[in-house]
């Protein structure tokens, strides 16, 4: 019992709280990335390997606009719009010809896209990482840390974007089309919904959301051509753990996985903490392959 008592006495409660805040902040960004990914999967059966690169591309467009205009909010807006358009173009050129083929083809094509985008970024912008300045620089005191308000703002903004997206799905005409197509593609087409347009629109929206999260996240780590790789893996994990194509599940899973990783990084270094989320994924696939945050299938 002594060991247990000792454990609780030396337990770093302050760190635990700090990591909880950290975990929720990264979780919200991850939720923003993953909700685009899960939407694209749920409706088009496309596992988008290039999602991380769209995230990175958004950050780079953000950098360019920041250098040009100096306005973070303008950068966020323009990056989202540009990458959404790029996403729409990618979908029309590469994914549309593959409709009706084995979904594995789409993995390969999006993997090709991710290679191209990543190497383009390396070629165009070089290996040194760029910096985006935070729009607000004030801090508040969290125990011994000066915690930046900006991080809290990121979480709030991600929540606003996801919330706005949810309202869009629920009440707008295009949102109804999207939900109808998810439920039954053939029937939706029969009712006169332009399914190809819905596909393109969904891919564009997913790309735009990835870009927005890229710009939001960029001030924390710097913009680099490999920044997409970590995120696409994490987003995959979240999407599978949350249940493929399930928006609410992805958001819950994003926060769950990020919290676990933050807690793990109290004890091990952050590059090893990643393993925790890998293990979560494997356990999920083994025991609840339909996802942790979905009702048990009957």
């Amino acid at each position: 019992m002594d060991a247990v008592a000792q454990f609780f006495q030396t337990f770093p409660y302050d760190q635990l709280l700090i990591q909880t805040v950290n975990g929720i902040v990264t979780g919200m960004i991850l939720a923003l990335v993953a909700s685009g990914l899960t939407l694209i999967f749920g409706i088009m059966d496309v596992v988008n390997f290039a999602h991380g690169e769209l995230f990175m591309l958004g950050a780079y467009v953000g950098v360019i606009v920041m250098v040009g205009t100096g306005s973070f909010w303008l950068a966020l807006f323009i990056a989202t719009l540009t990458v959404a358009l790029i996403g729409a173009a990618l979908q029309v050129v590469t994914l549309r010809p593959l409709i009706g083929r084995d979904p594995l083809n789409t993995i390969l094509v999006t993997f090709g896209i991710s290679l191209i985008l990543q190497n383009y970024a390396l070629w165009q912008f070089g290996p040194t990482s760029r910096k985006i300045n935070e729009p607000i620089t004030s801090h508040f005191i969290l125990f011994y840390l000066e915690y930046p308000w900006y991080r809290i703002l990121i979480a709030a903004l991600s929540a606003v974007i996801i919330g706005g997206f949810w309202l869009f799905l629920k009440y707008s005409k295009f949102g109804v089309w999207i939900r109808a197509t998810t439920q039954d593609r053939v029937m939706a087409q029969a009712m006169g919904i332009p399914v190809p347009l819905v596909y393109t629109g969904v891919f564009a929206i997913g790309a735009g959301m990835a870009a927005a999260s890229g710009v939001l996240f960029a001030p924390l780590v710097g913009v680099n051509h490999t920044m997409g790789l970590d995120w696409v893996l994490k987003a995959f994990i979240v999407v599978v753990v949350g249940g493929m194509g399930n928006l609410g599940g992805s958001i819950a899973a994003a926060i769950f996985v990020s919290l676990l990783e933050s807690y793990a990084s109290i004890w091990v270094n952050p590059s090893q903490a990643v393993i925790v989320s890998f293990v979560v994924l494997i356990l999920t696939l083994l025991f609840r392959p339909t996802g942790l945050f979905v009702p048990t299938p009957k």
Partner: peptide, 19 residues
Amino acid sequence: LRDIYFAITTLIFSQIFYV
């Protein structure tokens, strides 16, 4: 697991060994 789930699992395993 099957299809893309198999692909993702093998990918994640290789990343575990990488880390």
